[in-house]
Amino acid sequence: MIGMLIDVTKCVGCEKCVAACVKANGCDPAAADRDRATSPDGLSADRLTTVQPIGWDHFAKKACMHCLEPSCVSACLVGGITRSENGAVVYDPDKCIGCRYCMLACPFHVPRYEWSAKVPFMKKCELCEERLADGEIPACADACPQNAIEFGERDELLRLAHQRIGENPDGYIDHVWGEHEFGGTSVLYISDADLAELGWPSPDTESIPHLVEPVMHATPIVGGSVLASVAGVNWIVRRRMQQMHGPDASSNGHGGGEQ
């Protein structure tokens, strides 16, 4: 269960993490440069992470939050997005059909689409899957000169977060963003400024799969009962028609349009 802890008090907004991310994911630097100005929040298919200003002197890195109960994983109709064993939410381009439901489903507006490509795919942070396999840490955490991005086990990071808040209660708001919101996220934030601007809801917000999957799981029951009741009604009506008109009557309802 890996994760990242982003300390907003340490971030100076240099965007070295963005540069490292662009490089690590093989994105086009020129397009990343352009999208910084054109994308409303700075994320795009060529900028999988961005630094958003909060007020005028705070900055926060934004990318996929790697939710513990991800809405996109639940939404993807081909199961192309999965939560891997280490907690990273990863995408399988071989399954994707390009429906973009994940983009609608994500409460953080994270998934981005390669709109200009003729064979487009979804793009988002995958917690540097390949670098982790090589024993390295994610590129952004590696590049940060301020050590504002801590990478490690989520439990460790949570302890660290509370420790930092405890050591310096005046320097932080006593809240770890991502601990409970939407059922918890692997990317955690601590800050001395309110992060509501980044789209964080209130802490007791339920995870979206938790909200909708019970409805989805009721489907077979609904379907089965509709099937049974329609078939039952059909049988009753046919029987009564047979009783009233004799055996032929039941099949002439089909004649339809003859006038």
């Binding site: 639940s74 109709l77 081909v78 199961g79 994707c96 059909i97 973009r100 489907t219």
Partner: peptide, 26 residues
């Protein structure tokens, strides 16, 4: 015309995600 990779329209028949509403709709 809407989906990005229309030649994969048959994917949901093969790759299942039974938790997805879109899967059921499809």
């Amino acid at each position: 015309f809407d989906i990005g990779l229309p030649w994969r329209f048959w994917h949901p028949f093969v790759h299942w995600n039974i938790h997805s509403f879109l899967f059921e709709v499809f």
